[in-house]
Design a protein around this nucleic acid. Structure first.
Lengths: 206, 206, 206, 206
DNA sequence: GATGAATGAGGCTTCATTCAT
DNA sequence: TATGAATGAAGCCTCATTCAT
């Protein structure tokens, strides 16, 4: 069964994205195209054939990375869960999404995002993705029971957005922290920190 | 009164550190020594006379940066303040420490810390400083009233350390978030997010 | 009536030569095969199928270009025309041959000829063509009335060749001049400059 | 006697310009910086230290080349010379300026000028130089005796400019022609071709 | 015959570092 | 001590060419 050219190309593209992901995570976005290509068993020219430039590869990598963590949140879609339960669920999903990854892997988003600070195109793309992420999180946190037991007040959109904002910062910061120490955050700590943010809604309700 | 050689050298050193700080914040640690030296009115050779290498300059920069935000926490040393009040105070101090700085400035710590991930010397130095910071924060949060009104339980060392850990992550994450969007976090949001972490201690007390 | 393979190939060949002509004129011989192929609606591989290499394409282009301006000289074949009249006619024919072409087009011959300087094959082919051109011009200028009114001395072969040589240089130089300034030479100027060369024969006759 | 840094730098700059001149003449402006630097006994980095870029080196080369042929025209400044005599003198000066140069050298101006077609900066600089050259030639040809023997009409500015224009084209064209054939133009031919252009003024006087 | 993905050599440029001044 | 010209190693990118489809 002969492999078609399209198949070969797709395989190469995936190989390039995979090695780029690993190397960006471990060495930052300043990794050379040469090492990315070599790790994929190709040459730098192939990167240009497939992506057009290093920057475009980075943009694709970023997009792919975001899509990757969308499915993990399905577990907390259940509308009867309380705010705290949803936050705990997100903590678990986030941890699960990183399961099996090397410590260096934690720094991937930070590295690529930092590169975006000085790269208009990357920044624009990242802006879109971040907005989508925030919208998604906000939706997930809206209309939730503020206190554990029903009946009781539900989170408003405004409250949900504030919690989502803090949650995103917290998770980024934890990833950052642990990228530094090569040590994975403990589930218990992560859950408690996330759940604590539920108080931001309670304060409003007070 | 002639300036001694030592005085000149110190002035040059400070000038180099200052321009390095600005440029690393706005362009990342990959700024060229040439631009740092130029911004300080000196030449690349001077960096080698004074620091020995680019990396050593970065190490000094890191240390200097940490010391810079220690004093700001004096305001919350008052032992009668509740946990929530201390957290609010830290939020205010943190915001104040960044007041008047450009948006790009937010990314300084992130940039230099990310560079440290792959630089053993930087990493070692950063490890020490991070530990000091965590110890300081933990001490600040230990023995605090968990609930607003006295009398009531006080935070244990273990609780304090967990809150400190989450707090550090939250603040890093917020700096990161806003380095991306060129937009300063609002005081109210920041306070509420920080205060919410107090719940981590309440949960234990339950 | 299905198009045969040969027909398709010929059409492709012509398309390739046409876009190569345009692009060499506007961007020099260093244009990429990719852009030439793309402009012709084909791919780089096609160039190799049809011409074998970029250099061979250039050689064919050169030949084609020379043949293109042969017919334009028919107007001055009339044996009763004086030397001056023939020179004026050549000026007109030359201008006409370029009519409707963009300014960049002027640089075509210069570009390809310059490339030939360092390319033995191109150079050999160009040598032949240049010889043919000089022979043709010489023949055209031989046996012409040196002075306007008959009867009078006629140009010798030696005289004709000298005038042809200068004429070729003058026209190349003018093309070069105007490739630089994006400005077409005026007919009056061109005629007068060409006619002035007739004096080269008069001087001999003196 | 220690060589100062300025001396060393100047020597290097001259060496770089000299090898650039030779290599551009023989290989065109697409010579690699590497070969230019190597021919001067330096590295590519030195070119950036001294000129800033390949393009700037080319611009300097161009300027230097133009200044080089200014002095050669002093011989024809004598205001009593006739138009024909001045043209003959220019032919001689031009030939003398190239004496001792390799055949490939002829192509220098053509190469660099052709490169200018697609390089805005080079083109602007070349435009200035060309204008200066034309002005200089025009001035040299203005107020000259149109016919050999005095008294008689003198060339007007307008006539002089037309002749200068044609002269420039003729000389460029001859350089181009001979860059192609590796054969130096004969003095007699060159003189006669240049002198023939004097007729352009006579025609007006008619 | 044409495709186009991939190669591999080479080009321009940047920059931390060195060293003679 | 500071200078800054020069180095040399790398990096990103281009492109003529090849070859399996």
């Amino acid at each position: 069964m002969p492999t078609t050219r399209t198949e070969t190309r797709d395989r190469n593209k995936r190989a390039l994205l995979a090695s780029a992901r690993d190397l960006v995570a471990s060495d930052g976005t300043q990794v050379s195209l040469g090492s990315i290509a070599e790790a994929a068993g190709l040459t730098t020219g192939a990167v240009y054939s497939i992506f057009g430039s290093k920057q475009k590869l980075l943009v694709e990598l970023l997009a792919e990375d975001f899509h990757r963590y969308q499915g993990a949140l399905a577990a907390v879609a259940d509308p009867t869960l309380s705010l705290r339960a949803v936050l705990r669920g997100i903590a678990d999903a986030w941890l699960a999404a990183y399961a099996g990854e090397s410590a260096a892997r934690w720094s991937f988003e930070l590295n690529i995002a930092l590169a975006a600070v000085h790269d208009p195109k990357l920044k624009a793309r990242l802006g879109e993705l971040k907005r989508d992420e925030l919208d998604g999180l906000s939706a997930l946190l809206t209309g939730r029971l503020v206190h554990q037991a029903a009946p009781g007040p539900l989170t408003s959109e405004v409250e949900a957005r504030a919690v989502a904002d803090a949650l995103r910062a917290l998770l980024s910061g934890i990833a950052f922290q642990y990228a530094m120490t090569d040590q994975r955050p403990e589930r218990t700590f992560l859950r408690r920190a996330c759940e604590a943010l539920a108080t931001m809604a309670e304060q409003d309700a007070r």
